[in-house]
Design a protein around this nucleic acid. Structure first.
Lengths: 204, 204
DNA sequence: TGCTATTACCGAACAATGTACGGAAAAAGT
DNA sequence: ACTTTTTCCGTACATTGTTCGGTAATAGCA
């Protein structure tokens, strides 16, 4: 399990992570279009060409950023306590999802702007299925159904329910970014929408 | 209403549109990252610098492309026949929305990848509210409620219902792009999800 | 019809970007 | 101590968006 790390490997992993941290900071501060190899290099006091010892291209840096972001989201959702009722659990997961999208706007936009659209990483297939929000959602809903807390609308499979739940969450997260709904209280509204949407799952 | 168009203005509008057409073709064929000023110029047999007589920057071209795409989507949804029951109408609108996203993948990704995220056009506020999918959805749902065909879950406003409906549609459209669900029959599944989601609106 | 001002377009050049390459310094392995 | 590998850098190159001055075409007007 614990593979030996030579000091060299440790140092290498550290600067590789420093690159990602710098990149993420730039994106969070100035947006994706401001991310350049030279900016990253300057922040970690490297020469631009030095980065290529760690990542073969800018795209590879973005991919690593996305993978890390997905892992972080996954961990957040995995740590949502499942003690309460399945209904509350699902709601809490939904809230955590929206919170992640809210607190990491640029990262969230990067993730779901690169996974979708052309040449989306093939890895993202596994990512979405087993290692991220989608998997967490399915786990929660499936558990709820097995416990008898959730009732699926007739003719609907669990997969379908997970699918539409995720679609709703993602749509809410995206719509929030537009600030169209700067009508104040957008987050409260989102909560209400979640409650109402999930209410249909509860058995009468 | 009909402002006089001098021949000069007509010609100008024509090449301005030719630029957009070329840009859209490039995006549809090779994706957004392949869109360059020089490629556009070559297709319409102009010099790269010639384009700047019509658009001040590449971003301005993208903005125009987005505006045109939103208008097209709006028109598609507006032409969905409202003759049938409100329920069928809403379903047809949802299907038309997903069809647009499916048949114009790159354009759809461009639109909702630029409207969201930083420095999203402020104009998009009006766009979304009055002149696009959001407005069409609200119109349909509102009509349904007024006719008594739709029943809102207690405590939910129309705005909320429109909001979550759009979120669901957008999420489904985005999720489809991942091809994660290349399980075949994704479109049929989407239809089922729509039916099930909208079913909650019908009065018993 | 001629003169003038505006418009349309081009070629060349510039700055910023991602990236390849060769070499130097440092570290590791023997 | 010598060799090999790993890091890192300086330089250079191609491609990008964009600017600028100039030239041809057109429109407006006398």
């Amino acid at each position: 399990m614990a593979e030996k790390q030579t000091p060299r490997e440790r140092r290498r992993a550290r600067t590789a992570q420093a690159i990602l941290d710098a990149a993420l900071a730039i994106i969070a501060e100035q947006g994706l279009q401001a991310l350049s190899i030279r900016e990253i290099a300057q922040r970690i006091e490297y020469s631009p060409s030095g980065l290529y010892e760690y990542y073969a291209s800018k795209d590879e840096i973005l991919d690593a950023l996305i993978a890390q972001g997905l892992a972080q989201l996954n961990e957040m959702l995995a740590h949502v306590p499942s003690g309460e009722s399945a209904s509350e659990w699902l709601f809490a997961i939904g809230e955590a999802y929206l919170a992640f999208a809210r607190e990491h706007e640029q990262l969230y936009a990067l993730i779901f702007g690169h996974i979708f659209s052309p040449s989306g990483l093939v890895t993202s297939l596994d990512q979405l299925q087993h290692n991220s929000a989608y998997g967490q959602l399915r786990h929660c809903i499936q558990t709820g159904v097995e416990r008898g807390a959730f009732i699926l609308p007739s003719g609907e499979s669990i997969e379908q329910q997970v699918y539409s739940t995720w679609a709703l969450l993602h749509g809410l997260a995206m719509l929030r970014m537009t600030r169209v709904s700067a009508v104040t209280g957008i987050d409260a509204i989102n909560q209400q929408v979640l409650r109402s949407a999930f209410a249909h799952l509860n058995r009468a």
